[in-house]
Design a protein around this nucleic acid. Structure first.
Length: 523
DNA sequence: AGTGCCGGGTG
DNA sequence: CACCCGGCACT
């Protein structure tokens, strides 16, 4: 399930000389057990890109049609062509269907967007996108030098010089990834700075590649839930959102408190857009710094956490690891709502996460035990600690009437795969799939959602919700075994004993006679 | 104290 | 399994 889930995530990547670069948020996957021909094509492949040229890949599968075809139509065509057996392809289509932006921040933003923003003026670029896209799905996309085209800028760190085969591949992946996904195309003005999404993708690639001990075979097995290759904080899954908006946020205003909460998923984008503002939050452990500008946060990270000289512009992009974009609901902030009362405690899938949770995330949201997902809570806690606070304060089960716990479909669907995820959207930055991250409770849009966190130590609960509670247990913490001590809530209905009394004990149901849960007067 | 029922023992 | 009961949690 897990692996499948991952495959269903938005993938972006490029196949370079036999190596598949599948870049997912949080993790970059390079999978290819086939013979690498990178040595042969590698240099040719990325050199142009690094020089600002454009790498044009030609898909073998579509090569018969030539390269001159309308890229746009080809894209669609290719997607449609996806064979049922091609998991990656299906994965992509799945993405399209799922439209789960939270899953793949940098990427997600790009694929779908890429289609929409294909630069008609530059067919070559479209070809790139197409190829990158295809590559991401495992389609062969041998690179060629045809149609060299100017590329938008490629975030190649100055100080990082490829020093080996792996590095080259990394670079190639980075370049291609950025090319295929860089929204910057839309915003040339921001060229001077490294596009965050791109740079992130690049880093992700790097992190994945560097963490790999094998030479050309970089594969991130879906089952591999190992610890992230770097101690970097999680990149928020929402980084993909409002990317464009982020560029607008140039006003250097005051820091915002951590009160902000993530809007991982935006079911009603139009509605919220007005009040949403992209902020940059430091993900460094125990640091809740939130700044309104990426440069600001980068500086913060660089100087405060990385110990770099604040005066220096030097940046290897390392900072990108330590902050993420977040959407801040300005309405909630301006309305004087306590920062503790997020209007919509939505959470997204499992964020990648490294730093320890700031708050206890009640054993609840673990959708699965795999590490990836297990991270989700931490992100959750980091991103929306206040939400958790609320969650814990409400004991729905104490209500006299059955209380329905507003659990989003995501949660309900947890069983279906991380996708469960937390959300549908789960994905996250880096996250990968975080899927998970189900993690998560997604309240119905509105003020404080009453989400009840089931704690292990919890004791009996009124009958009205007993079933719900039990279900929640199963849903929310399938892995969490009911600890001894969690007893079935005592039913409110009169039992045989009360109904018949001790004198008519023979009239009791057998269960009652045996001191078991009454079977006759069930709750 | 009364009640509900879990957990465990016995045959 | 059926049957029983110690004991806990809760009212």
């Amino acid at each position: 399930m897990d692996s499948k889930y991952i495959l269903e995530k938005p993938l972006v990547g490029t196949r370079l000389g036999g190596a598949d670069f599948i870049c997912r948020p949080g993790r970059s996957v390079l999978r290819d057990t086939r013979v690498h021909t990178t040595e042969k094509n590698g240099p040719v492949v990325y050199k142009p890109a690094m020089d600002g040229g454009c790498v044009v890949a030609k898909s073998e599968r579509i090569s018969h049609k030539g390269n001159g075809l309308s890229p746009g139509s080809r894209i669609l065509h290719d997607v449609e062509k996806s064979g049922p057996g091609d998991q990656r392809d299906t994965g992509y289509t799945g993405i399209l269907k799922r439209a789960s932006p939270t899953h793949c921040p940098g990427i997600n933003r790009q694929l779908p967007c890429g289609f929409m923003h294909l630069d008609i003026r530059n067919p070559g670029k479209q070809a790139e996108l197409v190829n990158s896209f295809r590559a991401a799905h495992g389609l062969n996309a041998p690179l060629t030098e045809k149609q060299p085209l100017p590329s938008t800028h490629i975030p190649v760190p100055r100080n990082r010089k490829p020093s080996g085969h792996a590095d080259k591949e990394v670079m190639a992946a980075t370049v291609l990834t950025s090319l295929s996904t860089s929204p910057l195309v839309l915003n040339p003005s921001s060229a001077p700075t490294v596009p965050e999404p791109a740079s992130r993708a690049w880093k992700e690639v790097l992190s994945a590649s560097y963490s790999s001990s094998t030479s050309g075979n970089w594969s991130w097995d879906a089952s591999d839930q190992s610890v992230p290759s770097t101690p970097s904080p999680p990149l928020s899954n929402d980084t993909n959102k409002n990317f464009l908006l982020s560029s607008q946020v140039d006003d250097v205003n005051e820091d915002v408190t951590e009160s902000t909460h993530f809007m991982f998923e935006d079911p009603i984008p139009r509605k919220r857009k007005n009040s949403m503002k992209v902020m940059f939050k430091c993900l460094w452990k125990n640091c809740e710094k939130v700044l309104s500008t990426s440069s600001g946060i980068q500086r913060h990270v660089r100087t405060v956490h990385l110990g770099r000289n604040s005066d220096s512009d030097y940046s290897d992009g390392e900072e990108d690891f330590y902050y993420s974009e977040i959407e801040v609901n300005m309405d909630s902030l301006t309305e004087g709502l306590s920062s503790l009362t997020p209007t919509s405690p939505t959470t997204a899938g499992p964020p990648p996460v490294f730093p320890p949770p700031l708050t206890e995330v009640a054993h609840s949201e673990h959708i699965s035990t795999n590490e990836l997902q297990s991270h989700a809570p931490s992100l959750l806690s980091q991103s929306a600690p206040s939400a958790l606070c609320h969650i814990r304060t409400d004991h729905a089960y104490q209500a006299t009437a059955p209380v329905s716990i507003p659990v989003g479909p995501e949660l309900a669907g947890l069983g279906s795969g991380n996708g469960t995820g937390p959300g549908t959207g789960t994905g996250n930055a880096i996250t990968v799939s975080w899927q998970s991250p189900p993690l998560i409770f997604k309240g119905a849009p509105g003020p404080v959602t009453h989400v009840r966190t089931v704690s292990i130590g919890e004791k009996r609960q009124p009958a009205a919700n007993s079933h719900n509670t039990v279900k929640n247990h199963a849903l929310i913490m399938p892995a969490a075994k009911p600890t001894p001590g969690t007893r079935k809530p005592r039913g409110e209905a009169k039992k045989c004993r009360k109904v018949y009394g001790m004198e008519k004990r023979d009239m009791w149901c057998t269960a009652c006679r045996w001191k078991k849960a009454c079977q006759r007067f069930t709750d």
